[in-house]
Design a protein around this nucleic acid. Structure first.
Lengths: 261, 261
DNA sequence: CAGTTTGTTCAGCTATTCTGAACACTCATC
DNA sequence: GATGAGTGTTCAGAATAGCTGAACAAACTG
């Protein structure tokens, strides 16, 4: 480990929303290092663009940080980040895993792993579009959308009845979504296909936005026996992926508060 | 200057949208340094969160970059002050608005509003760096810098020709900047991208320094019809922001005289 | 205008980083 | 499976880069 880089990291970490500007002396006293050391650190960081020193000799985070931040956003895809975790899940439970996103009101499968053969990169079935009211991923994704919009979608697309368990009433669906959002996961209890159950959870990105949902599909008889374990596994997987996408729970709770709910 | 920090900067600069992932060997050959040196640099940068190394030992930019980028956004006064005015402009004209600053001789987008959806908090495209000789914001920002410095920058960066209208001659560019400074706004008449025109004006702070430039981008055919109106709108917006930042015109004119030009 | 603060420079001493070879590991290919 | 070329990682000694504290310049404050 390069000591100099580590110290540079400490310096950078001083800059936050509350204290966006630091002088040489401030840094020196804060980190308990000589003024001259603080100076060379700050000056060097400014030279490589991570800091800038504007008027008055005080230092601020540089514009290059914006650049790098943007590159992070533009080059990390949730599909790539999800893949490894999905493979782990598939290997452990040997059940089918789905990764889904919302596109114009319908659920689209962005990735899929069949449980039978351990690491089968199945392109089959990808991009399939289905109505969201009868799938676990659909519920998860819709539960994070504004209800009026969801209602409109439902009314436009209709809520066809596929099994006896399919939710076909809009008000009942709203209740379901509220609960899903609250508890952080959704079930599909034979609502789309008889004898097939699913459990899904949301995947958050760096901005605490739900960008996708991940689900595991299990035959009903097997699902009933270990519902809780499957649920926990899916939730854990989603948390892992979310973390890989830069999601941090404490930020999320902060933002929720700031947004007023 | 700390050599280690400078090298760390070189390493970081390798990461861009085209090459978001680097291995130890890649970095070593690219920078002509031993593998072990590359390794310790990468490992240290990962330790402080500026990089992360995922599966396969390859390195990517870390999530802390996003953090820092966000802090830059949230703590830059003129950005905060600009936001409301930009949203007004975007709502009224439904065209794309850019807020840009100068960083080490290149134009950096500090904020961006797409005209289509009224209040789209777009982080997309932020931090993009581009050469200033072919953009309206670039001309505005450079027109308030000392010419010898500008000339040096131009010679160092070159003035690549993107369209038939791109200014590629240094002397011609000096004339253009003088005019821009005199008249208080700049056009980009399809000089960077065909069929795309821009008009930009400067934003002054309390100290009568140009801290940023704001531009509106409009398709050429539409721009030609109402050039003057767009221009007036942008100038008005910039005056509004400048006033919010404590800028007062009469002080400015006084200072210009005192500075002898 | 003096006093106190700031950021910046410098040169010797010390410890840090650099280096290249050896190691562990993954992935194709034979 | 064994093999080879490709990774990333570790380590010790050699050499250089960074730490330091005092002295400097420059800005602000009374």
């Amino acid at each position: 480990m390069l000591n100099t880089v580590l110290k540079a990291g400490q310096v950078l970490d001083l800059f936050d929303k509350q204290n966006p500007e630091w002088g040489v002396s401030d840094v020196a006293t804060e980190l308990n290092i000589p003024k001259s050391s603080a100076h060379s650190l700050l000056a060097s960081l400014a030279q490589i663009g991570l800091l800038r020193h504007g008027e008055g000799g005080r230092y601020r985070l540089g514009w290059k940080m914006l650049n790098f931040g943007q590159i992070v956003i533009d080059t990390t895809e949730f599909r790539v980040e999800s893949r490894a975790v999905m493979e782990q899940l598939a290997a452990q439970y040997r059940e089918t895993i789905h990764l889904a996103v919302l596109d114009d009101g319908v659920v689209v499968y962005a990735d899929k792993l069949q449980g039978q053969q351990a690491v089968q990169v199945a392109v089959t079935g990808l991009g399939v579009r289905l109505s969201p009211h009868c799938s676990a991923v659909g519920k998860v994704l819709l539960s994070h959308q504004p209800w009026p919009w969801v209602r409109e979608i439902m009314e436009k697309q209709g809520m066809p009845k596929f099994t006896d368990n399919t939710i076909t009433d809009v008000d009942r669906f709203q209740e379901e979504l509220l609960q899903v959002r609250e508890q952080g996961f959704a079930y599909d209890l034979e609502e789309a296909v008889p004898d097939l159950c699913c459990v899904a959870a949301p995947i958050y990105d760096y901005d605490s936005e739900v960008v996708a949902a991940l689900s595991m599909s299990i035959p009903a008889y097997r699902f009933e026996r270990a519902k809780k374990e499957y649920r926990a596994a899916v939730i854990r997987a989603c948390q892992k992926i979310s973390r890989n996408l830069g999601y941090m729970e404490f930020i999320s709770s902060y933002r929720k508060k700031a947004a007023g709910g």
